[in-house]
Design a protein around this nucleic acid. Structure first.
Ligand code: MN
Ligand code: MN
Ligand code: ZN
Ligand code: ZN
Lengths: 140, 140
DNA sequence: TGTTAAACTTAGAACGAGTCTAAAGATTGC
DNA sequence: GCAATCTTTAGACTCGTTCTAAGTTTAACA
């Protein structure tokens, strides 16, 4: 169930609407990642959230990210080995991944057509389709 | 440069043709994974290769998998968090991934149409496109 | 508003897939 | 044969992530 996050709605209300108790830590993290579409890793967030005093623990960062994913406020993006990215752009879209720099970019859903779905047995439901275009900047 | 691996060609010759010195360990692993299309993880291979005596070390398993990937004899498939699979089916195809069972299946390339490629700056070359369809067996 | 149970946060230990190290073993060219 | 190069190995190590157990906050409600 996707929910919109209009500007006038506070993070506090967004979290409540998802059944998440808006603790100080969750609101702080929410403000950082839910107010605009952004790609980031757990460690990037951990560093950023702790730049301006008021320490938030690693465990809480991971717990909160997991909770936000569970509540469809964030999605995980799997690219290279050992790298998990989070994405607060919940509209249907895909990604390109620069294998050199590790940079992640968006591809509009309209730019990739999934024509036929695989032969799905009728008890199998599709939970999502992930497309990652691996790119490399040509060596000059 | 994809090479075919006809039945009459021994693993030994396949490896040599790729510039790989066919050591006993590499040939043994090659026989297990290169003679038919198969999906497997490093630890699955490590266990299987060591079932029938003649121990092969973890380091060699990882080194060999990395070497085979580098030489385009295997590809990596990234699915769930912390799960790296290897695939000896080198024809263009995609995957579905059962998020419950962890099972991985093939989707013929023809079943998914990549219509438009993203706006690629001319110095950016596409190295590959990975499509993973996440599926879940409906709770009975 | 005080009491309490449930939910949450925390530091740090633990985990595990994957990599590295340094030494021993194999292969190759001369 | 001899030396140079390449390969394998055990086990230590790394690092992203998860777990644990204790303390803190929140929410329910008397
Ligand atoms: Mn991370
Ligand atoms: Mn594995
Ligand atoms: Zn995105
Ligand atoms: Zn496959």
């Amino acid at each position: 169930m996707r929910r919109s996050r209009p500007e006038h709605e506070s993070i506090d209300e967004t979290l409540r609407a998802c059944g998440i108790i808006p603790t100080a830590q969750r609101v702080r993290i929410g403000r950082m990642v839910l107010t605009r579409p952004t790609h980031f890793s757990a460690e990037q967030l951990y560093e950023r959230v702790n730049l301006a005093g008021n320490h938030v623990s690693k465990a809480t960062v991971y717990n909160t990210l997991g909770l936000f994913v569970e509540k469809d406020l964030l999605r995980r993006v799997l690219v290279g080995t050992g790298k998990v990215f989070y994405d607060s752009n919940m509209t249907a879209h895909h990604h390109f991944y620069d294998v050199e720099s590790g940079e992640l970019g968006d591809i509009d859903a309209g730019e990739i057509e999934i024509r036929a779905l695989p032969k799905t047995a009728d008890d199998v439901q599709i939970e999502g389709i992930d497309v990652v275009v691996r790119v490399r900047r040509a060596a000059s």
